[in-house]
Computed example of a mutant assay.
Amino acid sequence: MKIGNLDLGECPVLLAPMEDVSTRPFRLLCRHFGADLLYTEFVSSDALVRSVEKTFKKMEVLDEERPIAIQIYGKDIDAMVGAAKIAEEANPNFIDINFGCPVKKIATKGAGSGMLKDIPAMLKMTEAIVKAVDLPVTVKTRIGWDEDSRDIVTIAEQLQDVGIQALTIHGRTRCQMYKGEADWEYIGAVKNNPRMHIPIIGNGDITNHIVAKERFDTYGVDAIMVGRGAIGKPWIFRDIKNYLKDGSEPEPVSFDEQLNILRMQVKSAMKWLDEKRGILHMRRHMAAMFKGLPHFRDLRIMMLQADTMEELEDVWQQMSEKYGNN
């Protein structure tokens, strides 16, 4: 699969852009486990053009994270064009436009998936951004706003016509949020539309290697994007790629291995931020990493209340004594 001059090979597996998740520590970990392409968290165009320092930090990428895309969102065309130009200066491999975020505070203001309620504005914005930057421009969106407007086949053609070079489709409507099952039939319909010639990336409910292969085989997508399925399980990229390559079943990841992976991620977050903020940032990942452990409630609470690495190491030692070598 190629996006502009970037060749990602056959059946690439991508890490989805997720707010407060797809930060540098998690991106580096997913790259370690084989993610072929990374995305930043989505970046507010309004904040970028206002030069908000925290927003600029989201665009800081290391060479070892490449290839990587910066994703931007907003409802104002001028702000989005300005943001795209600023993002281009950070030298990502391409710019991705977020037309898919379903969160109320974004979508109901006309940004993210809110653009699905005004397709002419979506197309006008996309075309303006394509013309404003030299990097390839891609889009991530959903199959429609609601059950009565699943218009992604037509929308995909129109987005292609204004110049995007790849399209990622999440198989839910905005109104579904993350409920129910992603409908990949619509993703397949876009991919198999003879008018389409840009890469189509499928997203939604890819939680293991078997599902990943089935999505490639059944719907013929050029790539798949893993989002929530990677939280607490970043080795999913290794599992998928090995299974796609030779059909090898994943080796179980022991508790000790999981703990070492988490320790590496926490240290990376502390280096990126500082000790206290890094640990706070990692709590979502800590909670997800050991989900399902029996009789874990008290230790889980202790782990999520820890404020220092010393406190964390003390809790982890207790966990190792109880669950280690499993």
Rank of each mutant, 00 (worst) to 15 (best):
R24S: 12
I236R: 02
L280Q: 15
P250G: 13
K54D: 08
P194I: 02
D246N: 08
L38C: 02
R172G: 02
S44Y: 03
H170I: 07
I72N: 06
G114Y: 07
E53D: 07
I231D: 06
T40E: 01
P252S: 13
F290K: 00
T154G: 07
R215G: 13
G232F: 01
K131Y: 14
Q71D: 03
I72T: 09
T23V: 12
V137G: 04
K191V: 02
F56K: 14
D314R: 15
Q305L: 14
E311C: 11
Q71H: 11
M286Y: 06
E214Y: 04
L273G: 14
G202R: 04
G188D: 04
Q265W: 02
I201N: 01
L29M: 09
K75V: 10
A87C: 08
A189M: 08
T173N: 03
A269H: 00
A128L: 11
N93C: 10
K124N: 09
E147W: 05
D298L: 14
V130L: 09
A230T: 03
E127M: 14
R215M: 14
N208P: 11
L299C: 03
R31Y: 08
T55W: 01
I301H: 14
T218G: 13
N193W: 14
G188T: 01
Q158T: 02
H209D: 13
S320Q: 14
E10C: 09
P25R: 10
K105D: 11
L135H: 10
H281V: 14
F26Q: 15
